[in-house]
Every structure is written in C-alpha cells, then in structure tokens.
Design a protein around this nucleic acid. Structure first.
Lengths: 141, 141
DNA sequence: TTATTTGCAAAACCTTTGCCCGCGA
DNA sequence: TCGCGGGCAAAGGTTTTGCAAATAA
C-alpha cells in the first residue's frame, strides 16, 4: 500500500535530519515506535522491530534509541518497576497517569501544574530544566 | 553518650513495630538512615553502616530496605541516573527538586499541585494512589 | 531450641561496549 | 571506496537469591 512507502520516507527524513545513516534496522525501529502508543520498553521494541526487519539486534535498538533521544526524536521514561520505556516525542509536553492494575499509560497535560512548578523553583532560586510527574492510579469503582 | 542509647532504643522500637528481629545490622542501617538527609543509595548506606557495624553486608542492606519500605518506614526513590535512593519516611509528604549540577536534593511541598493532581485523575475516572514529582533544576544566575 | 537472619557468591536484570565484518553514501 | 553502523558476546552496574552457618527470641 501507498502508506508504507510514505512511512518509510518519513523515517528516512527523520534519520537524515538526525545526521545518521538510513539503515534497515533504524527504519524498522522508527516505524514500530511511530505505531506504538503504549510506551514500550527496549525489549518490546526489539520484538516488534524484528517482525519488520529480522536482523535488528537489541544492541542496535538501545544504540539507536540513545541517538534519537539525544536528537529529541524520542523520549525515555523511567516509570516504577522494570526498565526504561519509550515514546516518540510529540508536539505538546505531557505527563503520565499509570494504571497500577493494568499497567496502562494515559497522558495528560496541565498548564496550571507547570506554572506552579516554575513558581516553586523560582522561589528557591532555581529554574526548572525538565520535570517528571507520574500519577500512579487505580480506576474508581 | 546518652543520645546513643536513646537512638538504639528508638531503632529497636521501630524494628519491633515492623515485626522483625532486632539485629545489629538492622540497627546500624536504621541509625545511618536516620542521620542521613541526603537521600543516599544502597551502596552509600552500606558504606556508612559498616562504620557502625562492620559485619553488615550489601545484601542485608537491600533486604532490610525492602522490608522497611514495605512497612512504610523508609521510602525508595528512583531519580534519574544510577540506582534507587532512600530516606526515612517523615510525617509530611513532599516532592523533590534535584540540582542538575550538584546532585543536591531539596524537598518541597505544594497542596495546590496535589489538589490539581487529584482533580485531573478524578476527571479521568481514576484515584491517585501515589505520585512522583521531580523537578530537575539549575540554580538561577 | 528453633525460626529468622546473615554473609557470601552466584545469578538475574537491564544496558553498554569492544571487536571485526558489512553495508550505506 | 571508506567510514559509519551492524551483530554478537562479553562486560558493567544494580539488585535479588540460594545456601549453610550464625543468632535473636
């Protein structure tokens, strides 16, 4: 289908923008990342990428994720328990709600909280460079 | 000095309350934890505890920290980079500012932010069980 | 006494790295 | 061509665990 070559082209552009070579392995990783909306970890990304390009190794997944993180293309999260989980960077900043029971991740955004954070830091003579806000929640019955 | 036996007694009480045996190793760990105000990691706690009681092993430090965490006596934090860091649970809940340059940890508390968090979760049908808020900051020049 | 707790060493994780070959530009 | 990027396997750092000896109650 046409969608696939569009996708590949997009990935190619993203990689060139990052100033790194366009390899089959990187295109595969980027495409599964683009599809994912569940904040997968490196091993999960590796499994999914292998379906697209069987030659991808876990080492390459980690190496590529690090590069892309440096370029601001992906974001790394260290939620409670287990290893790092990743998502492609999207336009708007957001924080996360984690469903304790199901492991689901929900994104949310609050300007008010961001403002309060800046205020608090400013009062202590600091400037917020980045932050982490995670709400570990349970569904209300 | 009198202070020391007071301290030991306090540790003893804390351990009995947790329903676990009062061992030299655990008393040593709890005493260095009580003294610490810098959120040390397990290896650092081990080093400090060894000064009090040379027979403490790192395995025991980890085992005891897990038990005490379960009992709500200590709290475990997973700040960016490196391993878990610990502090004794104190009365009032608080979040952390981390100085990116020095590694210093500053505690702060904001009822307003907590309220907003609850509101956001409620709107999505969730209930906040616990949360993590970390501000990675730089001193303003 | 006896059930818990310990130290030690090994294992278990997750992530990074060295090396040499292969592929992208 | 030529140098970046690849797989593989080994190493790294942190945390957990199996086991027999030690110890608190």
């Amino acid at each position: 289908m046409a969608g696939e070559s569009d996708r590949t082209e997009k990935m190619t552009v993203a990689l060139r923008k990052a100033g790194i070579r366009v390899t089959r392995q990187r295109v595969a990783l980027l495409s599964v990342l683009a599809d994912a909306n569940d904040h997968p970890d490196a091993v999960e990304l590796h499994d999914r990428a292998k379906q697209v390009e069987p030659t991808v190794s876990l080492a390459t997944v980690y190496r590529t994720l690090s590069v892309l993180e440096g370029e601001g293309v992906v974001q790394r999260h260290a939620f409670e328990g287990g290893g790092a989980r990743f998502e492609t960077t999207h336009e708007d900043h957001h924080d996360h709600i984690l469903d304790i029971d199901t492991g689901a991740v929900i994104e949310f955004q609050s300007d008010k909280i961001e403002q309060l954070q800046d205020e608090i830091a400013r009062e202590l003579g600091y400037e917020v460079v980045h932050h982490r806000l995670e709400l570990y929640c349970r569904k209300k019955h």
